[in-house]
Computed example of a mutant assay.
Amino acid sequence: MYEIFSELNLDELVSSINDEVIEWRRYLHENPEVSFQEENTALFVYDKLKSFGNLEISRPTKTSIVARLIGDYPGKVLAIRADMDALPIQEENIMKFSSKNDGIMHACGHDGHTAMLLGAAKLLCNFKNQIKGEIRFIFQHAEELPPGGAIEMVNAGVLNGVDQIIGAHLMSNLETGKIGLKYGPMMAGADMFKITIFGEGGHASQPNQTIDPILIGTQVVTNIQHIVSRKIDPIDTAVISVTQFNGGTAVNVIPNFVTIGGSVRSFKPEVRKRIPELIEQVVNGVTNAHGAKYEIEYHFGYSPVINDHETTSLIEKTVCEIFGEENRILINPIMGSEDFSAFLNEVPGTYFFVGVRNEEEGIVYPHHHPKFNIDERALKDGVKIFVQAAFNILNN
């Protein structure tokens, strides 16, 4: 552990601003804004950063913030990222700081991410004269809505000169005090498809005079499910989920068309490339067999999150130093997605989880649930890791 931080001193430093970090999180929770509309959130973050001193602050996009802390000694550049957007969900929690914005809620912990990074920035600003290199604090907009804010920030040049990047996500299925790490593939790529099947509608009493797109569509759905089980190597993880099936306007009318939508999750580039080809084969074969036509819209979304080994190792050592090996959890990959991958596609880095689950307090609801909440003790854990990791990485 870097010499200025004994375990006691780090705990004292973080404890000294813990009330502020909680206050910031509660303000953000009470005033959520959805993706690409985080104007007040960005202004709040900007004003806080400006008050810390020693930072060069910029606005690379309309609703994002970057703050640069340039140390007094030459060295590497480390970026630390937090996302800031909320979700279009009506909150069901009853708290003094429940969302004031109807139909909008911080149901994924981004309020906590922002507060933790603000806390780390405030503390690290005091050590400018001991920092080798630069720490770049990235407050990102629009993680929840593809194409996502990360790719916009990359295109705006926020990673220029960056050597490594780290980020954290508060995690509802991990107990408070536990930190989840993963070497290599951590979160899946997420892609989307929409299939339109064109038949010939008619009266429900005379299906023989129609080309029924509903019947054809059900066969398409069934056969798409065979792709993962029969066309993808069992060792290669993939998921295809049909989540939408829309068609028809009356119970006695066979419609002219139906639409089918869904999500695809995968890790390997070759699997990701192959799946839309296989979906097309299925749709083409089924529709041709029944004399129907089709259109497919396929959108590649967030790439897989692939953690760099060296950076992950440094974070693992940091976590063990602070919390002990018993609280470092090596997790399995998950099929959720994250646009932090856009940063990892440019520079090496790692993404890790900070536990926020507290069954005694009833903090058990999953992400994106209207009763999602976090154990605020975890905010201190995240700040500790960011602060200590910054010194460990820059002085490695």
Rank of each mutant, 00 (worst) to 15 (best):
M1I: 03
F5G: 02
N9M: 13
L13F: 13
E20H: 05
V21G: 10
E23Y: 12
R26E: 02
E33M: 01
F36E: 00
A42D: 02
F52C: 12
E56N: 13
S58M: 11
S64L: 11
I65A: 04
L69P: 01
K76Q: 01
I89H: 00
S98K: 15
K100W: 07
K100L: 14
G103Q: 08
C108I: 00
G109D: 05
N126K: 15
I135A: 04
F137M: 10
P146C: 07
A150M: 07
V154K: 06
N155G: 07
N160E: 15
G167Y: 02
A168H: 03
N173Q: 11
N173W: 07
I179G: 00
L181M: 15
K182S: 02
M186S: 15
I195C: 02
A204D: 03
P207V: 06
N208Q: 14
D212F: 05
L215R: 13
G247M: 07
A250P: 01
A250L: 09
P255R: 06
P255C: 08
S266L: 05
F267H: 07
P269N: 11
E270L: 09
I275T: 09
I279S: 04
V283I: 13
V283E: 11
N288I: 03
Y298V: 12
Y298C: 08
G301T: 06
Y302C: 02
T311F: 13
I315Q: 08
E316W: 01
V319N: 02
I322C: 10
G324V: 09
E326W: 02
I329S: 05
E338W: 00
S341G: 11
P348Q: 09
K371D: 01
L379K: 05
N395K: 13
